[in-house]
Simulated scan of single mutants.
Amino acid sequence: MSKIRKILRMYSQQRPIMTIAAQTDSSRNTVKKYLAAFKASSFTFEEIDALNDKELEDLFGKSKEHPPTSRMQSMQRCFPQVDKELKRTGVNRYMLWESYRKEFPDGYQYSQFCFYYNQWKARVNPTMHMDHKAGDKLYVDFAGEKLSYTDKDTGEVIAVEVFVAILGASQLTYVEAVPSQQKEDFIAACENTLHFIGGVPAAIVPDNLKAAVTKSSRYEPTLNETFEDFADHYGTTILPARAYRPRDKALVEGAVKIIYTKIYAPINRVTYHSLKELNTGIWEALETHNSQLLKGRNYSRRLQFEEIERHTLMPLPVLLYQFKKHFYAKVIKNGHVNLGPDKHYYSVP
Score class of each variant (00 low, 15 high):
F60D: 00
G61V: 07
K84I: 08
D53E: 12
R77L: 15
E55C: 05
V82H: 08
E57L: 11
F45D: 09
R77A: 15
A50M: 05
E47L: 09
S70D: 12
T44E: 10
E55Y: 04
R77E: 14
S70L: 12
I48W: 06
P67V: 03
P80S: 02
D83F: 12
L51F: 07
E57V: 08
A50V: 03
C78S: 03
Q76K: 15
T69S: 13
K87A: 05
G61K: 04
T69K: 03
E46G: 02
L86M: 14
T89L: 09
P68F: 01
F60G: 00
F60C: 02
M75R: 13
D53C: 08
D58E: 14
L51G: 00
P80W: 01
Q81D: 15
R77W: 03
S41N: 10
G90A: 03
Q81N: 08
K64Q: 15
S42F: 11
F43V: 09
D53N: 10
S70C: 02
E65G: 11
L86Q: 03
S74M: 09
K64L: 09
C78H: 00
S74P: 00
G61Q: 08
G61H: 06
K62Q: 06
T44K: 07
F60M: 04
L86V: 09
L51M: 08
I48Y: 09
S42T: 10
K62F: 04
R77Q: 15
A50T: 03
P67I: 03
F45S: 06
F43W: 10
Q76E: 14
R71V: 05
D58P: 00
G61F: 05
P67S: 12
A40R: 07
K84G: 01
P67M: 04
L86D: 04
S74C: 05
S70I: 10
P80L: 02
D58H: 09
S42R: 09
E85D: 14
Q81S: 11
S74Y: 03
L51P: 01
K39H: 09
T44V: 08
K62Y: 08
N52E: 06
L56M: 13
L86W: 04
A50S: 10
N52A: 03
Q73A: 08
D49G: 04
K54Y: 13
N52L: 02
D49P: 03
F45P: 04
D58S: 12
D53Q: 11
L56E: 00
L59Q: 02
S70W: 07
S63F: 12
K62S: 04
K62W: 02
E46I: 09
E57I: 11
K62H: 11
Q73G: 01
Q76D: 01
K39G: 04
